[in-house]
Simulated scan of single mutants.
Amino acid sequence: MTVKDTAQTGGTGARQAQEKVVMDFSGFGTDVEVAAPPAADTVDMTDKVSGRSGTSSQTN
């Protein structure tokens, strides 16, 4: 992902950053009630992540 580094560039530049997401799953088989969030609370990132090239994914 590219983020604006306003603290070091005065708001004029961007640089690459890496992010690692760790998720722990538990409670399989437990009944739950869920509802989709309102559209105003969501963002479609499909184009952002599917257009990545030259990157690798790591699975632990």
Rank of each mutant, 00 (worst) to 15 (best):
M1T: 04
M1I: 05
M1A: 10
M1G: 05
T2K: 15
T2E: 13
V3I: 14
K4N: 13
D5G: 09
D5A: 14
T6Y: 14
T6V: 15
A7F: 09
A7I: 12
A7V: 13
Q8L: 15
Q8H: 15
Q8F: 14
T9A: 11
T9V: 10
G11V: 02
T12V: 11
T12Q: 11
T12C: 09
G13Q: 14
G13C: 12
G13I: 03
G13K: 15
A14M: 13
R15T: 12
R15L: 15
R15C: 12
Q16L: 10
A17W: 00
A17T: 00
A17D: 04
Q18W: 02
Q18N: 12
V21W: 10
V21P: 03
V21K: 10
V22L: 03
V22M: 01
M23Y: 06
M23E: 08
D24A: 13
S26M: 11
S26F: 10
G27H: 04
G27N: 06
G29N: 00
G29Y: 03
G29D: 00
G29M: 03
D31K: 15
D31A: 15
V32R: 07
E33G: 03
V34P: 02
V34G: 03
A36L: 11
P37I: 07
P37H: 08
P37S: 12
P37W: 05
P38D: 14
P38W: 09
A39Q: 04
A39G: 07
A39C: 07
T42L: 08
V43R: 00
V43P: 00
D44Q: 04
D44M: 03
M45L: 12
K48R: 15
K48D: 13
V49G: 01
V49Q: 01
V49F: 06
S50M: 09
S50Y: 01
S50F: 05
G51E: 06
G51C: 06
G51N: 09
G51Q: 08
R52S: 11
S53Q: 08
S53P: 01
S53W: 04
G54H: 02
G54P: 01
T55Y: 00
S56K: 14
S56R: 13
S57W: 05
S57G: 10
S57T: 09
S57P: 02
Q58N: 15
Q58D: 14
Q58W: 08
Q58I: 13
Q58V: 14
T59L: 09
N60M: 10
N60S: 12
N60T: 06
